[in-house]
């Protein structure tokens, strides 16, 4: 099966529908699928629901889809650093569902693994637990504790950024740019990946593959801006 597409628009052709649910990889601006987000903007798809840890900044990442009012709802753990997001949220134009970061990651992983729900201690006794099933379990320390049930995420589409892919979609990520990309890839019915380099099959040591190509349906190679959100440095000692 041919997984390689010439560009982001071609890779998303036939996959985008108004109101669809998209899981996106990335943490802050690190490891975000910037080319695919640009193609979704160009396609003009509307009323999108995004599961993504963050919402980008005003002019980069998911922020570019907020400017064009293409997003209906965000499921995120942290949405600071984005003035347009706050404006739309406070005016009621945008829905927001906060998930604790680990709960969001596990909801994606679980959905991708065919697990419809799981129990976690995270958020018990907070507003996050409101309306959710509570159940007591004996934990690894032998003590009974209360847990809440969280549901797995099944996304219509996953958009992901990796460092390198081979022609069959086996992926290798780089440093902390891995973050939400593997769990996001796993929970998509279709997963489209953008990479910095596509290499021939056999290039990777099979023991070094981070995400097997079974989760990957379409791949593009392109040039990435890879913007830094907070440049922090120290003096040369």
């Amino acid at each position: 099966m041919q997984k390689i597409y010439p560009n982001a628009a071609a890779a998303l052709d036939g996959l985008l529908t108004d109101g669809m649910f998209i899981a996106a990889g990335g943490f802050g601006l690190c490891g975000i699928p910037e080319l695919l987000l640009g193609a979704i903007k160009d396609a003009g798809t509307k009323d999108l629901i995004f599961a993504s840890n963050n919402a980008g900044v005003d002019d980069f990442g998911i922020g570019i889809l907020l400017q064009t009012r293409q997003v209906k709802k965000m499921i995120s753990s942290y949405v600071g650093e984005n003035a347009e997001f706050m404006r739309q949220y406070l005016s009621g134009e945008l829905e927001l569902e906060f998930n604790p970061q680990g709960t969001l990651a596990e909801r994606m992983r679980a959905g991708g693994c065919g697990i419809p729900g799981f129990y976690t201690k995270t958020g018990v006794g907070t507003v996050i637990a409101d309306g959710k099933e509570h159940k007591d379990f004996v934990g690894p320390d032998g003590k009974s504790q209360t847990y809440i049930m969280e549901e797995g995420i099944y996304a219509d589409l996953a958009i992901v950024k990796a460092w390198k892919a081979d022609e069959t979609g086996n992926l290798i990520f780089r440093k902390t740019a891995r973050n939400f990309n593997p769990p996001a890839a796993m929970c998509g019915k279709v997963c489209v990946v953008e990479v910095e380099e596509i290499v021939p099959v056999g290039t990777f040591d099979p023991d070094h593959i981070h995400l097997p190509g079974i989760y990957v349906h379409r791949i593009i190679q392109g040039d990435h801006e890879k913007r830094i959100e907070q440049r922090t440095v120290r003096e040369k000692s």
Binding site: F27, G28, L29, C30, G31, W163, R174, K175, T176, A177, K226, R227, I228, E229, Q230, R231, T232, V233, R234, E235, K236
Partner: peptide, 16 residues
Amino acid sequence: IDGEEDPDLINAGKQT
């Protein structure tokens, strides 16, 4: 060190 920042390497506060 200044000049050696890597956009793929940040902490949870999004700092290089």
